[in-house]
Computed example of a mutant assay.
Amino acid sequence: MTSDQPEARPPRWCLAGNIVEERRYGPLGAETRRGTRLFAPGAKVYCLPFEYDRLFAFGRHRKSGRFIGSIVPARLVVERRAQLVYHPEVLRRIEERMAAGEHGVNSRYPWDDRESVESHIAALDALDSASAGLVDPLPVEIYDELVASGTIASGAPFELLNGVLVWKPPKEPRRSTCAERAHAEIERIVPEGFHLR
């Protein structure tokens, strides 16, 4: 390798998938759309976790063919699989996204190996099956019935927020440590008779 060539980036495990061919759209899902606004149906995308049931997807724009990044609902990425990524443009985009530190994606890469990616995929699959065919917004009573019947396992990493069933990503050790330290410092200065939660 000559000194003027950039150093090759090491491969990374990533969640890969394809954009759904067709999706329901509009009030009560009365319309059908192909792909998404930015990605063509069937387009291959490489994804990072974003928030709950959404992914940050990298792939080729449906019109220009250039690599782009976009936030997409996880349900629009099908045939999800763990893949070792070697593509230099994808690796560069992943590193840029990690350095940006936005929306729960920080400098710590979320997946170290195939098993960690497959664990995330399993959580997304469970969320898909738990919410398949459910009305939106989901009433609390129906959510409680799903838990009681075992459709949603007790203690599963799901939460009902404003009628939407969402996946709760595990907390990072660094976040937990910071929260504990902040809690201890604030508790030290809270006047007597007040409680900190």
Rank of each mutant, 00 (worst) to 15 (best):
C14R: 01
A57M: 04
R75L: 08
V20E: 13
R9A: 15
T2D: 10
F194E: 03
G150V: 03
L91Q: 05
V78P: 00
Y52T: 04
E187R: 11
R66L: 11
P6E: 14
N162K: 14
H87N: 13
R181A: 12
P110K: 01
L91Y: 05
G163K: 11
E89P: 00
D4M: 12
H120V: 00
A123S: 09
T36Y: 12
L196G: 08
L55S: 03
L55H: 04
A156W: 04
T151I: 07
E102V: 03
E192Q: 11
P11Q: 08
G17P: 02
E118V: 02
S149V: 04
P169W: 14
C14D: 02
Y86A: 07
R188K: 14
A8Y: 03
A126V: 00
F50A: 09
A153E: 15
S107I: 01
F39M: 09
L138R: 10
P41Y: 10
G35M: 10
L48M: 09
S149I: 06
D128A: 11
L161P: 01
E159A: 14
R80H: 04
F39P: 00
L76G: 00
G59Y: 07
E115W: 03
F67Y: 11
R33N: 07
D4S: 11
Y52C: 10
S119H: 09
G29D: 10
P11H: 09
A30I: 15
L38D: 14
L48T: 01
G59N: 03
E89H: 09
K168W: 01
I68R: 06
L124K: 03
H195P: 00
R93W: 07
I19V: 15
R97A: 15
G42R: 10
Y143W: 14
R81V: 06
L84Y: 05
E185L: 15
D53L: 02
A123Q: 07
G26T: 11
R12I: 06
N106A: 06
W111C: 07
P10C: 04
K168C: 13
A74W: 02
E141Q: 13
L165E: 10
A153I: 00
A8H: 08
L28V: 11
L127I: 01
F194R: 09
R60T: 06
P169R: 15
G133W: 07
F50D: 13
Y46L: 02
Y52R: 11
V72I: 13
Q5A: 13
D113Y: 05
T32E: 13
P157S: 14
A43M: 13
P169D: 09
E187L: 12
C178V: 14
E172V: 02
Q5Y: 07
I152W: 03
P139N: 12
R12D: 08
E7T: 12
